[in-house]
Design a protein around this nucleic acid. Structure first.
Length: 112
DNA sequence: CTTACGGCCCTGG
DNA sequence: ACCAGGGCCGTAA
């Protein structure tokens, strides 16, 4: 991939990210696909990894294709993501943690 | 439910 | 040029 393509890819990823709303979640592969680079899921991960910790982008809304957080449970990165997702209405369960099945909330953000 | 494998494609040593 | 290692993915057992 040329540098220019990378730049494009990068900006597309950030754009897509900025467009994912509260209560939604998207997979790495899906982001790559929408960005016009199917198969570049791992690159998406690498980009997110470099985001400044004070970023406004909702990096936590990106999970793997199995709807699981892609961090080991013991890590703090895992904890940060989990906390954020729970704040947005997601239910995270089990030792291996799974995200709630029913897609984007739409009307779900409100607890009751 | 779980692990194992092959394929994926950039980074950094 | 080589190689190892990732915020991955799909399939198969």
């Amino acid at each position: 991939m040329t540098n220019q393509a990378m730049e494009h890819f990068k900006s597309q990823v950030f754009l897509i990210l900025s467009e994912t709303l509260t209560g939604e979640c998207i997979s790495y592969g899906e982001v790559a696909k929408r960005a016009g680079f199917p198969g570049y899921a791992r690159q998406v991960g690498q980009l997110l990894k470099k985001l400044p910790k004070d970023t406004k982008l909702p990096w936590h809304r990106v999970v793997n294709a199995q709807k699981r957080i892609s961090f080991a449970e013991n890590t703090d990165a895992y904890l940060r993501q989990r906390t954020k997702l729970e704040e947005e209405g997601w239910l995270i369960v089990g030792t291996k943690l799974t995200l709630q099945e029913k897609g984007p909330l739409n009307k779900a953000a409100q607890p009751y």
